[in-house]
Design a protein around this nucleic acid. Sequence first.
DNA 1: GCCGTTTTCGGCCCGACTGTTTTCAGTCG
Length: 572
Amino acid sequence: MARANDEAAALIQELADLLSITGGDAFKIRAYEKAARAIAGHPGDIAGLDLAGLRAIPAVGDAIAKKVLDYNATGTIRQVEELRLQIPAGVRALTEIPTLGPKKALALYDELGVSSVDELATAIGEGRLRGLKGFGAKTEENILRGIELLRSAGERVLVDAAASVADEIVAALSALPQVERCAHAGSLRRMRETIGDVDVLAASRDPRPIMEAFTALPLAAEIVASGDKKTSIRTPKGLQVDLRVIPPESWGAALQYFTGSQAHNIRTREIAVRAGLKLSEYGLFHAESGDLIVSATEEEVYEHLGLPWIHPALREDGGEIEAALKDALPRLVTVDDLRGDLHSHTDLTDGIASLEDMAAAARARGLEYYAITDHAPDLVMQRMTDEKMLAQRERIRELQKEYPDLVLLHGTELNIGPEGDVDWDADFLSGFDVCVASIHSHFTQDQATMTRRLVRACENPHVHVIGHPTARSIGRRPPVDADWDEVFRAAARTGTAMEIDSFPDRLDLPADLIRRAQRLGVKFAIDTDAHSLGHHRNIRYGVGTAQRGWLTPDDVINTWPLTRLKAFLNPT
DNA sequence: GCCGTTTTCGGCCCGACTGTTTTCAGTCG
């Protein structure tokens, strides 16, 4: 799965990390970090590029291009190897501890020889940090707390968990009389697939009571920091929530700033600086006079930087600034664009709602067509039979009479076997309106086998959609290993759509693979894979992932009118 | 180390909070 791009980017990022510990020039470190992002996000494979090709990547100059050539030839970068001899990997790991950065990590290593998180915990236990310059009692306490957080997997949470915390806090704060506006920002607004902390923004002239109400919420199990402008808490489950209160007239600039990403903000602020301006969360100002230009809305801020408004899902410094400058931003797909859902289950297999209730939920979403796709017999535990499937088809035909405005499609979710074969013969398969095919077992095949397996599934004329293609489960099961460009080329050639499964722990395809697939001409289906009525609400996460993959409505087959969709499913 | 519709040299995003400090460095986002 790891491409040369990702490995080279990781090495250059490591170089930046190691230099920040050894005290390298801060601007050089930033240059490496920027280049690492550019290389990771570069659409082409860097393995085949020469010096000129590498230098054409933005933020990659002569020096970094040569390091990448070094990587292409040897699989590593000489400078990284040299620095690794100076700074043990464990010292870099120390900077993973919240509140402990590169400077403190180096001090601990130089003064005490501490080179791992475990050694640091021991050193504190033995009182060896006492008297070390810059390390007071409070710092020691914070480090211990940070180690605890690190170990208790106080990690990123799934997007739906973060969204429910954010919704609760925004609702509570919005009810306060002092609050004029309140919304969440940060990685949740950008719809990242996992969320490290929740950012909430409130507009008010009177911050104090808001901060007090915030820290008094039942969700505030711990207060991490508190000031008049910014307060941070941790929920009982360990999720950090940052609240920023800004004056109402700063709303647009603040929302832009706190939505990030940090890399995107650096780009927008650089544009401001070059134009003799200064951009902060309080507004866009003339650099010289300090006079305010705009701050009320995001649109105004972008406009005065010479840019169209950029959708939050694109704000990753992944080419959106360049596209905006050329007025070439995509018109991103939205939930409202979707006319149908091509993947759902009923209680005939592992769903928990009836066919009738699922159809009613689809109608409530305002869909024009809706596919029921229960599991096929090869997933033996689902106990599917030909008879059951045909009986369901009859029930759907009956039910259709009650749904003049919603076309019910009869489909199935096939199982892609280890060799790429699927359930049923061609004759039986041809009876379905739509067939999704997915991997449910044999996740650990080698890359060549897995690639053949997926390509073969694409080549089956009865397979219309590859369901949750990487089969990953975020935080639990890694994606399967395939040569994805090879799979995508097969999908584009055979007219097989790649699914974007909306389950918060799947979000599969992931956004980076969506972008690669789209560039190769692949079409997509954004589905809920609903197994219950509540799962229909997950669609916003699938759409958010599609947006992060830069998809337009035309890229997504279930935004199409039914006639166009049917032509795609059954080409003549 | 990168980069240029002011620049091939001299810049490089900006602000909040904490802790250990008496004026600021470190960390974070």
